[in-house]
Write a protein that binds this DNA or RNA. Structure first.
Length: 609
DNA sequence: GAGCACTGC
């Protein structure tokens, strides 16, 4: 039954022990580094031991769920979607025969909304729990509760070997298994003195490495598009004037890069390759052949400032766990090396772990989900880390104003409908109201494009300017309507690829917007029957303004900036807005975010507040 | 004149 490959995995020696542990305990923890085989093998062991059980395995990312299902199917020599399948957004590859389902944790939360007992599964495995996403934290809370109601249910938490005691205490279990993986060692070097400018330091380190060390590709961790482009330019320049013969291929990798350009970073290169990447290469993406890692020591982190009610996207030092994760990327093939552009002393002072997501994001949609799952008092719900009470209370009150909850915080019919849509509550509210007012096509197009990121792609020094392109599509002083217009024009155009090229648009992004639109349309069919349509921009703005009632701002001439109605904070219109450099008196916005300045993103002019 | 970490439903 078990082929030789499977028997060689480190986890195999633990097979009997783990099966027994699952029999004896309701909740068990399995910790092991990547490569020990826990994710692919444990579900199969459970199935082989008791072929009647239905198993769910969650993953933070959709690609992981899909590839893992494929791998396991191959090992069991079954067709994908039969015995073993996956279920991710836009792609359900399961059947009535499916016993092992790999799914994203967001998907399992949606299943909780439909069936609060999750009766279709006998065993639930939460994988990569150490990543501490909002979804996996919430799932752990829900499963902890569910274990009291369903005594036969088995829950398995899988994670890297960190914070195990914390998970064990929280889940009240002593059944812990630690699996050693066979990974190659990575030699870590720190710079003796920290350089002021990590871009310069990065370039020097890469070149020195290139000219002195034996063959093997390099992965460099930077923080964003800007420093990646800087390093690339300088590297290419220095290589040109270098007297050394050895060539170096410079590739980039970050999520705003169109997928076809990202692919270049994976191709085998004749010369040594250096991939300049964001933390996308930390967990989401693996590049083969990496022997050297260079780590700048920083990462951009998005956090929600509770008092000011603004998001920030700022540079922060990495955590120790993150630095280890980055270094580990050098040891996947053979023994590797990691160069850190910071001192040993700086390393010692780093935080052990990054603050979990649930403690640093706005929780409006999570709280609506919790209410939809039937949690009476979300303020006292037992999560592994409790979010700020005042933030949750503020979120509850916002949901009351959006009529998702009544004054006693009970879920309304409208709230139930809102929670069924894969959108932020404001947008769910907007879409439902827009349907009722007969502006559904405009609203659907607008919301669909607003869901996707990186609509435009500008290479450094691109001829076409953003304002010129925006000018072509601009409608009614509104980013929301302008984006709806872009999607319409895209759909009407025959040659979509050249349309995108002309307008610096991202083809894959618009394709995704179309999938989103179709999905929203399908969901909306279950909520309302209304489908008459009129083209009324004023009505659109009126409904949007009501949905974004906490996101109004007024221009203050003395400050030359916008004053947010909610907090009196000053902010500027983002350069990617059609209203950039214009000064309409009243605006509504989707998001306020601090990067280099406090910016309002996706802005629409309105007549009055 | 000036900007764009990463996931997920």
């Amino acid at each position: 039954m078990l082929n030789e490959f499977r028997m060689q995995l480190p986890i195999f020696q633990f097979r009997e022990k783990i099966i027994k542990s699952i029999r004896d305990n309701q909740v068990i923890i399995i910790a092991g580094e990547t490569g020990c085989g826990k994710t692919t093998q444990i579900p199969q062991y459970i199935y082989e031991n008791d072929p009647g059980v239905k198993i769910a395995v969650t993953q933070p990312r959709r690609v992981a769920a899909m590839t893992l299902a494929e791998r396991c199917s191959l090992e069991k020599q079954t067709k994908l979607g039969q015995l073993i399948g996956y279920n991710v957004r836009f792609d359900d590859c399961t059947s009535k025969d499916t016993q092992i389902t790999f799914l994203t944790d967001g998907m399992l939360i949606r299943e909780f909304i439909i069936d609060q007992q999750l009766k279709r599964y006998d065993v639930i495995i939460i994988d990569e729990a150490h990543e501490r996403t909002v979804q996996s934290d919430l799932l752990l809370g829900l499963l902890k509760n569910l274990c009291r109601k369903r005594k036969q249910l088995k829950v398995i938490l899988m994670s890297a070997t960190m914070q195990i005691e914390k998970f064990a205490n929280y889940l009240e279990t002593e059944a812990i298994h630690i699996i050693e993986a066979r990974t190659h060692t990575v030699d870590v070097y720190n710079v003796p003195i920290r350089q002021q400018d990590y871009v310069e330091s990065m370039v020097n380190t890469i070149l020195q490495l290139h000219f002195t060390q034996p063959e093997g590709d390099i992965l460099a961790f930077l923080t964003g598009q800007e420093d990646i482009e800087d390093v690339k330019e300088i590297l290419i320049e220095r290589m040109k004037i270098s007297t050394q013969e050895k060539q170096l291929d410079v590739k980039m990798l970050y999520s705003a890069l169109p997928p076809e350009v990202q692919l270049e970073a994976f191709q085998k290169s004749v010369h040594r390759k250096v991939v300049l990447a964001t933390n996308i290469a930390e967990t989401s993406i693996t590049i083969d052949g990496i022997v050297y890692v260079v780590d700048c020591g920083y990462v951009k982190i998005r956090s929600f400032q509770i008092g000011k009610a603004i998001d920030t996207l700022l540079l922060a030092p990495v955590s120790k766990a993150q630095a280890e994760q980055r270094a580990g990327r050098a040891g996947r093939q053979r023994q590797g090396q990691c160069y850190r552009l910071y001192t040993q002393q700086t390393y010692e002072r780093l935080a052990k772990y990054m603050l979990p997501e649930i403690l640093r994001v706005n929780l409006l949609s999570v709280i609506l989900q919790m209410k939809a799952i039937g949690i009476q008092n979300v303020l006292t719900f037992d999560l592994i880390d409790r979010p700020d009470m005042e933030l949750m209370l503020a979120n509850l009150n916002q949901l009351v104003k959006l009529k998702a909850l009544d004054s006693e915080f009970n879920l309304t019919e409208h709230g139930k409908n809102m929670s069924s849509l894969p959108l932020e509550p404001q947008f769910s509210h907007f879409l439902i109201k827009a349907y009722e007012c007969g502006i559904y096509d405009l609203a659907l197009n607008s919301i669909s494009v607003l869901q996707v990121e990186n609509l435009f792609y500008f290479q450094r020094g691109a001829k076409e300017s953003l304002s010129k392109i925006l000018g072509k599509f601009k409608i009614a002083n509104s980013d929301h309507l302008t984006k709806a217009n872009i999607l319409r024009k895209y759909e009407e155009t025959q040659n979509k690829k050249s349309f995108c090229k002309e307008n610096c648009l991202n083809h894959k992004t618009l394709q995704k917007a179309i999938s989103v639109k179709q999905q929203l349309k399908d969901y909306m069919k279950r909520i309302t029957k209304k489908e008459f349509e009129k083209e009324d921009y004023d009505k659109f703005k009126q409904v949007l303004s009501e949905a974004l009632m906490f996101k109004h701002a007024v221009y203050s001439p003395s400050d030359q900036a916008y004053k947010l109605k909610s907090t009196n904070q000053l902010a500027y219109i983002h350069p990617e807005s059609v209203l950039f450099n214009q000064k309409p008196k009243y605006v509504i916005y989707n998001e306020v975010i601090l990067t280099k300045k406090v910016y309002l993103r996706d802005v629409t002019e309105i007549d009055e507040l």
